Amino acid sequence: MTSVEFESRVVAWVRQQPEVEALIQIGSRVQSGGVVDAWSDWDYQLVLSDTKRFLHRDWLKEIAPVWCAHLERTERKVVKLSAVFAGGFEADFVLLPAWQMKLACWGLNHPQWQKWFPSMLRRGVYNLQLIGVPGYRVVLGGPEWEKRLAGLRGDWSPRIMSAEDFDFHVTSFWRHAVWVFKKTMRGEFRAAQRWHAREVREHLYALLEEEARVSGLKPRPEARQAERWLTPERLAQTSVQLTPQRAALAQALLAEVALFREATASVATLRGFKLGDYSALENWLRSELGKLSS
């Protein structure tokens, strides 16, 4: 089975499903300047009049033989079914209730009213922008859905980090840095490794992304394609290895504490945010980590 044949199978299957109101393709395969290679997956949004029949993995085998499938609720609060089909073809299907998608599209087409939107609608609009602005293709759904999604090209200000977001990431970083240090001290090296990757770096990259955006670069969320938008200096500073050994974990945390301090000061200056005084915590943490890394 070739890539073209796989895509044809997906479209042919969708055409036979009365619950599907639209099939929208997103991701690198339809983005301007997107890098498509042998490792690229397929990203689809299934807009459904009724999602119940699709909240399981069995229907995937109607498209092609399935090696593995995984159903999850993502951090953006949507249900995604990911599958690896025979031959290594990987596809993600986000299952979207049609009424929710139509409401978010309505919001997209009325940016002049955004300040009055409830928080759930604002989040829905933001999520649509996040995945749609880089590029999308209405595979099935016709002019009706093309018109709805035209709001992605509208006069919307991009979502930028607020002062509250900044404070959240700063305080979360320091809290989790201490937690990782204590796990390291207890000899729970793999727990420290896990929490470092999951939390410490999550908040670090949020600040690096904002720094890059304010500096005129085009960052992607979740460190996606970071090799393209991080500066050479930041690339070098983020080349930190996490090895489940006490000294190595301490060295990694020390390096990222230093980078985080630089990034927070940079973003605070560029955006005019107030940066709290965490010097006592940082100095204590550096002193304790220094004992472990020597």
Rank of each mutant, 00 (worst) to 15 (best):
A263R: 10
A197K: 10
V200W: 03
L289E: 07
G27E: 05
R57S: 11
Y126R: 10
A206E: 13
T171Q: 12
H169E: 12
A163H: 12
L285S: 08
E227M: 03
L270P: 00
L259G: 06
G124P: 01
S28P: 01
R234P: 00
V11E: 13
D43V: 05
T231K: 05
G276Y: 10
V47S: 10
P18F: 02
S287C: 05
R175N: 08
I131T: 07
R286H: 11
W67L: 15
W39Q: 06
S3T: 14
W145P: 01
G276K: 09
K77S: 15
V4C: 01
W99G: 00
D58V: 03
W145F: 11
E202A: 12
A191E: 13
N283L: 10
V178Q: 12
R29Q: 04
A206C: 12
F54C: 01
G276N: 05
Q251H: 07
F166I: 06
G142D: 07
K80T: 15
L230C: 10
V20S: 00
K61T: 14
L249D: 04
G124W: 02
V35Q: 13
Q241K: 14
Q31W: 02
F168E: 13
V78M: 12
R9V: 03
G276L: 05
N283R: 14
E202M: 08
I160L: 14
D165C: 09
G141A: 07
A212E: 04
L130P: 02
W174A: 03
L207S: 09
S215Q: 12
R190A: 05
T171Y: 01
C68E: 12
R234K: 13
W13C: 02
R123M: 08
T238R: 05
L46V: 10
C68T: 10
S119H: 01
G276F: 08
R137L: 08
F89M: 09
K182C: 01
H203C: 03
L235P: 08
R123D: 12
A38K: 13
G124S: 07
E5D: 15
V267R: 11
R198V: 04
M161Y: 05
A258Y: 01
L71V: 05
F6Q: 10
L48A: 05
L281F: 13
R213G: 03
E62I: 01
G27D: 04
V36H: 13
Q241I: 05
G151V: 08
L48F: 03
W39P: 00
I24V: 15
A191G: 06
L55Y: 03
V30C: 07
G34Q: 08
Q25F: 02
G27T: 04
S3P: 04
L46D: 04
A91V: 14
L253W: 04
S239Y: 07
S119T: 06
L152N: 09
H56V: 00
G135C: 11
Q45N: 14
A263W: 06
V79N: 02
A64Q: 13
S28F: 06
H176S: 10
S32Y: 06
V66D: 11
E72W: 11
L60D: 04
P221V: 06
F181N: 02
L152A: 08
P244S: 02
R198K: 10
T184G: 07
P65W: 09
K183E: 15
A38P: 00
A250Y: 07
Q17H: 09
E222I: 10
L285W: 08
L46E: 06
E202Y: 14
R190I: 09
A223V: 00
W13F: 15
R159Q: 13
W284S: 12
L285I: 07
D41T: 06
D167P: 00
F189H: 14
K80E: 15
